[in-house]
Lab assay of single mutants.
Amino acid sequence: MLEGKVKWFNSEKGFGFIEVEGQDDVFVHFSAIQGEGFKTLEEGQAVSAEIVEGNRGPQAANVTKEA
């Protein structure tokens, strides 16, 4: 698991990027966000996630919002 913060997230398109210190930004799709209801993230929000290899490079999986 790694910790980072949301760089930006487009709720209409359902994707965005997470900033991780010392690494390239990581793509995040709404389907990777854990929880019930409408899955979205806010800019600057702290999150933790796993990194997996997607079709277009590294992407976030099992994204959870930090308190």
Rank of each mutant, 00 (worst) to 15 (best):
residue 60 A to G: 05
residue 6 V to I: 08
residue 55 N to Y: 14
residue 40 T to G: 05
residue 61 A to H: 11
residue 60 A to K: 02
residue 24 D to G: 14
residue 17 F to L: 05
residue 20 V to H: 03
residue 25 D to F: 07
residue 32 A to D: 13
residue 27 F to V: 00
residue 54 G to W: 05
residue 35 G to I: 07
residue 3 E to Y: 14
residue 64 T to F: 13
residue 52 V to I: 12
residue 15 F to M: 06
residue 64 T to S: 10
residue 42 E to F: 14
residue 27 F to L: 05
residue 50 E to C: 15
residue 65 K to Q: 08
residue 37 G to N: 05
residue 58 P to V: 10
residue 36 E to A: 11
residue 3 E to L: 14
residue 21 E to L: 12
residue 3 E to Q: 15
residue 33 I to M: 04
residue 56 R to V: 07
residue 17 F to A: 02
residue 62 N to P: 02
residue 10 N to D: 12
residue 16 G to S: 00
residue 66 E to T: 15
residue 20 V to Y: 06
residue 33 I to F: 02
residue 66 E to M: 15
residue 23 Q to G: 11
residue 45 Q to P: 00
residue 50 E to D: 10
residue 2 L to M: 11
residue 57 G to V: 04
residue 60 A to V: 06
residue 39 K to R: 11
residue 32 A to N: 09
residue 25 D to P: 08
residue 43 E to F: 12
residue 51 I to A: 03
residue 55 N to G: 11
residue 12 E to K: 14
residue 65 K to A: 11
residue 43 E to W: 12
residue 18 I to A: 01
residue 38 F to A: 07
residue 55 N to A: 14
residue 13 K to H: 10
residue 48 S to F: 14
residue 53 E to A: 13
residue 44 G to L: 04
residue 31 S to E: 08
residue 19 E to C: 14
residue 42 E to N: 10
residue 13 K to W: 10
residue 7 K to L: 05
residue 19 E to A: 14
residue 18 I to F: 02
residue 46 A to D: 08
residue 41 L to D: 03
residue 34 Q to F: 10
residue 2 L to R: 11
residue 43 E to P: 15
residue 14 G to L: 03
residue 47 V to G: 03
residue 54 G to D: 04
residue 1 M to L: 13
residue 36 E to Q: 10
residue 5 K to R: 12
residue 15 F to T: 00
residue 12 E to V: 13
residue 11 S to H: 13
residue 23 Q to M: 15
residue 3 E to F: 14
residue 3 E to C: 15
residue 37 G to R: 01
residue 1 M to G: 09
residue 3 E to W: 13
residue 54 G to K: 06
residue 10 N to S: 11
residue 66 E to R: 15
residue 6 V to Q: 00
residue 37 G to Q: 04
residue 45 Q to C: 10
residue 27 F to N: 05
residue 10 N to E: 04
residue 48 S to D: 04
residue 26 V to T: 02
residue 58 P to Q: 08
residue 50 E to V: 14
residue 55 N to C: 15
residue 19 E to W: 10
residue 12 E to N: 11
residue 35 G to H: 07
residue 67 A to Y: 12
residue 13 K to V: 08
residue 30 F to A: 09
residue 61 A to N: 09
residue 22 G to S: 05
residue 24 D to E: 13
residue 40 T to S: 10
residue 54 G to I: 04
residue 53 E to C: 15
residue 49 A to N: 02
residue 37 G to H: 05
residue 12 E to F: 11
residue 41 L to Q: 01
residue 46 A to V: 14
residue 29 H to N: 02
residue 54 G to A: 06
residue 28 V to P: 07
residue 8 W to E: 01
residue 3 E to H: 15
residue 58 P to N: 07
residue 43 E to Q: 15
residue 22 G to D: 07
residue 18 I to L: 09
residue 27 F to Y: 07
residue 38 F to P: 08
residue 43 E to D: 09
residue 43 E to N: 12
residue 48 S to N: 10
residue 30 F to Q: 08
residue 5 K to Q: 07
residue 8 W to R: 01
residue 52 V to T: 09
residue 66 E to Y: 14
residue 8 W to F: 07
residue 10 N to Q: 05
residue 54 G to H: 07
residue 37 G to C: 10
residue 36 E to I: 11
residue 33 I to P: 05
residue 62 N to F: 11
residue 67 A to Q: 13
residue 22 G to Q: 05
residue 22 G to V: 03
residue 65 K to V: 14
residue 49 A to D: 02
residue 62 N to S: 10
residue 62 N to V: 11
residue 9 F to Q: 03
residue 59 Q to K: 09
residue 43 E to K: 15
residue 20 V to L: 10
residue 57 G to C: 07
residue 15 F to K: 00
residue 11 S to K: 15
residue 45 Q to L: 07
residue 27 F to G: 00
residue 3 E to R: 15
residue 48 S to H: 14
residue 9 F to V: 04
residue 55 N to I: 14
residue 47 V to C: 04
residue 52 V to P: 01
residue 63 V to D: 02
residue 19 E to F: 10
residue 44 G to P: 01
residue 40 T to N: 07
residue 14 G to K: 00
residue 25 D to H: 06
residue 44 G to T: 04
residue 33 I to R: 00
residue 25 D to W: 09
residue 35 G to M: 13
residue 55 N to R: 15
residue 57 G to M: 04
residue 32 A to H: 07
residue 45 Q to V: 09
residue 31 S to L: 08
residue 7 K to W: 02
residue 9 F to H: 02
residue 8 W to Q: 01
residue 54 G to P: 02
residue 24 D to K: 14
residue 1 M to R: 15
residue 22 G to T: 03
residue 63 V to F: 00
residue 9 F to R: 00
residue 19 E to V: 10
residue 52 V to C: 14
residue 11 S to Y: 11
residue 18 I to W: 00
residue 55 N to T: 13
residue 65 K to G: 08
residue 34 Q to V: 14
residue 33 I to D: 06
residue 53 E to V: 14
residue 62 N to H: 10
residue 1 M to K: 15
residue 10 N to R: 02
residue 13 K to S: 08
residue 4 G to C: 07
residue 23 Q to E: 09
residue 34 Q to W: 09
residue 59 Q to A: 08
residue 34 Q to C: 14
residue 66 E to D: 12
residue 49 A to E: 01
residue 63 V to L: 08
residue 48 S to T: 14
residue 11 S to M: 10
residue 9 F to G: 02
residue 40 T to E: 07
residue 18 I to K: 00
residue 41 L to F: 05
residue 32 A to E: 09
residue 60 A to D: 02
residue 51 I to L: 10
residue 57 G to K: 05
residue 5 K to N: 06
residue 57 G to Q: 04
residue 62 N to K: 13
residue 9 F to I: 04
residue 53 E to R: 13
residue 17 F to S: 01
residue 31 S to T: 13
residue 59 Q to R: 10
residue 6 V to D: 03
residue 17 F to N: 00
residue 22 G to E: 05
residue 10 N to I: 04
residue 54 G to Q: 05
residue 50 E to K: 12
residue 2 L to G: 03
residue 63 V to C: 04
residue 19 E to G: 08
residue 38 F to K: 05
residue 48 S to A: 10
residue 31 S to G: 08
residue 36 E to G: 10
residue 16 G to N: 00
residue 52 V to L: 08
residue 41 L to S: 02
residue 44 G to F: 05
residue 5 K to L: 09
residue 34 Q to K: 10
residue 2 L to W: 10
residue 26 V to Y: 05
residue 42 E to K: 14
residue 17 F to G: 01
residue 39 K to L: 11
residue 65 K to S: 09
residue 46 A to F: 14
residue 29 H to V: 03
residue 19 E to H: 11
residue 60 A to R: 01
residue 36 E to M: 10
residue 47 V to A: 03
residue 38 F to I: 07
residue 50 E to M: 14
residue 13 K to A: 08
residue 63 V to S: 03
residue 44 G to I: 02
residue 31 S to W: 08
residue 12 E to A: 14
residue 30 F to N: 07
residue 29 H to Y: 06
residue 46 A to I: 14
residue 29 H to E: 06
residue 8 W to M: 00
residue 1 M to H: 12
residue 12 E to W: 11
residue 17 F to I: 06
residue 23 Q to L: 13
residue 41 L to H: 01
residue 13 K to M: 09
residue 51 I to V: 11
residue 38 F to D: 07
residue 22 G to F: 07
residue 15 F to W: 15
residue 12 E to I: 13
residue 47 V to L: 03
residue 54 G to F: 06
residue 20 V to R: 08
residue 14 G to M: 02
residue 17 F to Y: 08
residue 44 G to A: 04
residue 22 G to I: 03
residue 31 S to N: 07
residue 42 E to A: 12
residue 58 P to H: 08
residue 5 K to Y: 10
residue 42 E to Q: 12
residue 42 E to M: 14
residue 46 A to K: 15
residue 66 E to I: 15
residue 34 Q to Y: 09
residue 61 A to P: 02
residue 50 E to W: 10
residue 58 P to E: 04
residue 28 V to F: 13
residue 24 D to P: 15
residue 48 S to K: 15
residue 34 Q to H: 10
residue 12 E to C: 15
residue 40 T to D: 05
residue 56 R to C: 13
residue 39 K to C: 09
residue 44 G to D: 04
residue 28 V to A: 02
residue 8 W to P: 00
residue 38 F to R: 06
residue 15 F to L: 05
residue 40 T to W: 12
residue 12 E to M: 12
